[in-house]
Design a protein around this nucleic acid. Structure first.
Lengths: 244, 244
DNA sequence: CGAACGAAAATTGTATACAATGTAGTATTC
DNA sequence: GAATACTACATTGTATACAATTTTCGTTCG
């Protein structure tokens, strides 16, 4: 859980107003991103408590920023907050996971359905480049990179549909299940399967086979929830729910 | 824009911990709700600035709560925040509105498609009761009540699908277009059309006519974006976009 | 020996003061 | 006379101190 200090040097030109790179107070957004990564990579387990002061010390900042970050993560559905008791990494039940993936599938299929064919060669090239990055990250075992390159690939793919709201909503649902990614990604064969799926998707895209692309998208979503639910049942038993 | 003071009396039993009625710091959530209502009812126009100090005075509280409320509304997509310049009521372009409604339609149709038929009589009764409240609010011209009773009707209807994530996502998208509701609701005939739609929906539900319910849901979503876009084009002209 | 009570510690929630930033209005210079 | 620099004001961002709440742990009583 080692984390480099934040904001050590605050002295910046102050006169540089090129665009608006930092929307939120910046610090809060960065902290949220770090915590999110920890959750994605399985470094923070479900139901683990997230204490404001600890995180403030860790990130070398005051509680205000951490507080904002936690609020943000709560809205994203990654952490759970109980009024006077604090925040913890959210644990999803198999039912919740199933529901989220059901909606995700519907939306991703919708996106694929409205993509305008044929897809421009430049877009295909871009997807191929992102796919190569993903494959390389897998080969090197760099899990954080695997996560981000996979994310970029899917954003580019669904970005082809042109409906910003749809893209945003798909992202939102994907974020909700970030916490369970590490379960499927623990199996190298699952990673490789994902890699091959991406290749098939690009192929289908190139020849404008919409139905095949839809089928691929559906299949591509199956392994993650299955792996999580299997692990969950093994941990807590099939019938009863542990209330710990 | 008259608003009653908030939190005047802070003295409460303090020993009452029945459930968790207030998730957020409560004050922030209340302020967010008030501002949201103002936007829904057209009392605050798109691009109107929301100044923290003004709102703090208005709600008789300090800036911290207002700040949180604005962050919340930003995430909901109702207000827009520029880093060091503050917040304003978000104005939606016709393109954005069209995109949002496209996704909404897909999701609402999905919800209707997975409702388990036949629907329990108690659920039908509940919908009828909510429909009556809606009709009554329209008859009395109580717009705020129209808004909330309409909301409750739809939540109950889509709640029948049983997928919590789907319900949540539908709500989310509905919230994004709260700001344009007042355009369609300005026409009394539109309100009446909505009322009749609700009656037809209940009827279709009672006899398990799924296809008809789907068609009704689709039609029900049409008027709002159309009214908004018409008003928008009349205001700004069809081709060019005002940059004011 | 266990359950209930109560004080202390840990943690979150709230308020305020201060600093940084952006905005506008005015004067000054070319 | 118009453009620019400068100053005063308005607004947001940040940090810290304080209050309220919950949790923990030791003690006492049944």
């Amino acid at each position: 859980m080692a984390t480099k200090p934040l904001k050590q040097v605050k002295s910046k030109p102050a006169k540089s107003r090129e665009a608006t790179p930092a929307r939120e107070p910046a610090a809060a957004a960065l902290i949220a991103k770090r915590i999110e990564e920890d959750i994605v990579l399985g470094r923070r387990h479900p139901r683990e408590r997230l204490i404001e002061q600890d995180l403030s010390d860790l990130f070398r900042t005051h509680r205000g920023d951490v507080r904002l970050a936690l609020f943000e993560l709560e809205k994203k559905g990654l952490v759970e907050r109980v009024p006077n008791r604090g925040a913890m990494v959210r644990g999803l039940t198999p039912e919740e996971v199933t529901e989220i993936y059901t909606v995700r599938e519907e939306l991703e299929v919708m996106a694929v359905r409205i993509i305008a064919f044929p897809v421009a060669p430049s877009d295909i090239s871009r997807l191929e480049e992102l796919q190569r990055q993903h494959a390389a990250a897998i080969a090197r075992g760099e899990m954080l990179n695997v996560f981000y390159s996979n994310l970029r690939f899917h954003q580019a793919l669904f970005g082809l549909c042109g409906n910003a709201c749809l893209i945003e909503t798909i992202d939102l649902l994907a974020q909700k299940v970030y916490g369970i990614r590490s379960y499927a990604n623990a199996f190298p064969e699952a990673l490789d399967r994902a890699r091959l799926d991406h290749l098939d998707m690009i192929k289908a895209l190139r020849v404008s086979h919409r139905d095949e692309l839809i089928e691929l998208s559906r299949r591509h979503l199956k392994p993650s929830p299955e792996a999580y639910i299997k692990a969950y049942e093994q941990r807590f038993g099939k019938a009863e729910h542990a209330t710990a």
